[in-house]
Design a protein around this nucleic acid. Structure first.
Length: 503
RNA sequence: GGGCCCGUAGCUCAGCCAGGUAGAGCAUCUGGCUUUUAACCAGGUGGUCGGGGGUUCGAACCCCCCCGGGCCCGCCA
């Protein structure tokens, strides 16, 4: 059984599934596992017939923790301020919006229908008022839980609410001194003393308290989160006790997921720069294939993502599943159906033709868009399919070729008129081919047969013959399978090109 | 110190949550086909399921102990 179905099998009743990310940097493919895991469980719950809501909380009131490698020094002064009150690293808007915008875009492309909430809004609108009050009233109880669960002592003057200093704007510098509803008095390290209104977003709960407060407030019943929160003594353990013992609501069920590693480099993490942003990934991956990456692998397994050398194998795999769903291929995975459904944007669409791998060759034969469409029609792909969706797929392939493809699979056709030095044997072979070419049936098989039979004359090596074609056409000694390669090109163009190289 | 995950064919993994006598892809071998961006078709070889103990008529699967690998335990997916 598929992992999402197995999980939801044990769940009954109405559900609120929640995930969240702090928009402190580029949101990358690793982050996408959080929300895609949630989305897939959401779909599983829906198909089981459970009433279900799916929400995403952008933790935009979280303070900026440090000047990340992708920021310049001018951000030093903003460290400690809430992300939604810091200017964007580029252009207009806020820091939080800057990193949320491409993420929202990705959500749309991936067809993730989630209600996006912002923590700043929950605080500013006063929604958190009651829970903050409860947390302050139950300060000692919460402190005891945190001590017991994490096994660490809290700071002397620990307080379950971090006021934002109205003078310096930082949310992690002030020390709370007292509470007189609805104001928390504080002294800030910047020298300012003041009062923070807990109804107005002038401060926040610390993470370990905020999480259970969120569960309580939003009625969260299911949450997916990374393994770091799931460790014994981690945020889930303390959150569970706080939500149950202090707020009086049951803790959500959960799915813990493993990290996504970038092949050969390590875990994706904004602060290390080992990262492929989700919006970047979607410039060369069909959205279904990114969903597939998450849907197919159990959350408990780490995923090694390789956008370069083995990427085409991954794409083969993804297409194989979709094609198998439409009975054009076979896959032995008993979860085939579920994997394809959860990878699809809505209903599964397929089979997928031509393959991504095939397009990689076609796009390089025909860098010009119009000629490419013509080339596709030569291959028997109906024109009406070419316009919209095919155009998108072509754009993905091109972007991949330009930015990620290994050199060994790249080539470009030499323009007409390019001079190429050929050995006599090679010239003879091309001449021989040209003499047959006019009458040759222009299909992959017959072209291949023809070249092969020519090459074998007089005890020649096939290598010599094939190499001659590649040298003349792409200036390399190797290239795509020749019969297939030539058949995708205009016959006259090929004949003219070969001819001019002999004169 | 504590926790989680992984350990099944040479490699990558499925099967474990509802115990019933081990699967897939790749690699390899055989035959066919065949220069080539990890070609294709048919068939075969290949595993003390990390080790040990327990429960059971029966364990890869459930329980306990151990070994090896990865990750996590202020904040952070």
């Amino acid at each position: 059984m598929h992992w999402a179905d197995a999980f939801i099998q044990k769940i009954e009743g109405p559900q609120v599934i929640s995930t969240g990310i702090s928009p402190s940097g580029p949101i990358h493919v690793g982050n996408m596992r959080e929300i895609l895991t949630g989305d897939i469980v959401f779909r599983a719950a829906r198909s089981k017939g459970l009433p279900v809501k799916f929400i995403f909380l952008s933790d935009d009131i979280d303070p900026l923790r440090k000047v990340y490698p992708f920021l310049d020094e001018s951000f030093r002064e903003h460290v400690g301020k809430p992300l939604y009150e810091i200017p964007s690293p580029k252009g207009e808007g806020t820091y939080a919006d800057h990193f949320m915008a491409p993420f929202r875009d990705s959500l749309e492309k991936l067809h993730i229908q989630v209600e996006i909430l912002r923590s700043s809004q929950l605080y500013e609108s006063g929604k958190f008022y009651e829970v903050i009050k409860t947390a302050i009233a139950e300060k000692d109880r919460i402190a005891r839980i945190l001590r017991e669960v994490s096994g660490r002592e809290l700071e002397e003057n620990w307080f379950p609410y971090s006021p934002k200093c109205s003078s310096c704007g930082k949310i992690n510098q002030a020390t709370a001194t007292s509470f007189t509803d609805p104001y928390v008095s504080y002294n800030c390290k910047c020298g300012h003393s003041g009062k923070s209104d807990i109804r107005k977003g002038e401060g926040k709960l610390p993470w370990r308290v905020e999480w259970p407060a969120k569960w309580h407030l939003l009625g969260v019943t299911i949450e997916s989160f990374g393994k770091d929160h799931g460790s014994a003594g981690g945020a889930y353990d303390s959150g569970k006790r706080i939500v149950e013992e202090v707020f009086g609501t049951p803790a959500p069920s959960y799915l813990i997921y493993e990290r996504i590693l970038l092949k050969g480099e390590g875990a994706m993490h904004s602060s290390t720069g080992i990262v492929i942003e989700s919006s970047e990934a979607l410039r060369f991956m069909p959205p279904e294939s990114l969903r597939f990456l998450i849907a197919r692998n159990s959350p408990l397994r780490h995923i090694e993502f390789d956008p370069k050398d083995f990427y085409l194998n991954f794409m083969d795999d993804y297409e194989k599943y979709f094609n198998a769903y439409f009975k054009k291929d076979t896959v032995s995975d008993p979860d085939l159906d579920a994997v394809v459904r959860y990878s699809s944007l809505e209903k599964p669409v397929g089979p997928i033709e031509p393959s991504y791998r095939h397009l990689v060759t076609l796009v390089q034969i025909y860098p010009d868009e119009k000629k490419l469409l013509h080339g596709l029609s030569l291959g028997g792909y109906a024109a009406k399919n070419i316009a919209g969706e095919m155009g998108d797929r072509i754009a993905l392939v091109k972007y991949w070729l330009d930015n990620y493809a290994p050199e060994s699979i790249k080539f470009s056709l030499l323009p007409r008129g390019t001079e190429v030095k050929l050995e006599t044997a090679e010239q003879d072979i091309l001449k021989e081919f040209l003499s047959q070419a006019e009458s040759l049936n222009w299909t992959a098989q017959s072209i291949h047969d023809s070249v092969r039979s020519i090459s074998l004359k007089d005890g020649g090596e096939p290598m010599t013959a094939f190499r001659a074609f590649y040298r003349v056409l792409i200036g390399k000694d190797r290239g795509p399978r020749l019969g297939f390669f030539l058949s995708e090109m205009d016959k006259k163009w090929v004949i003219d090109r070969l001819g001019e190289c002999l004169s």
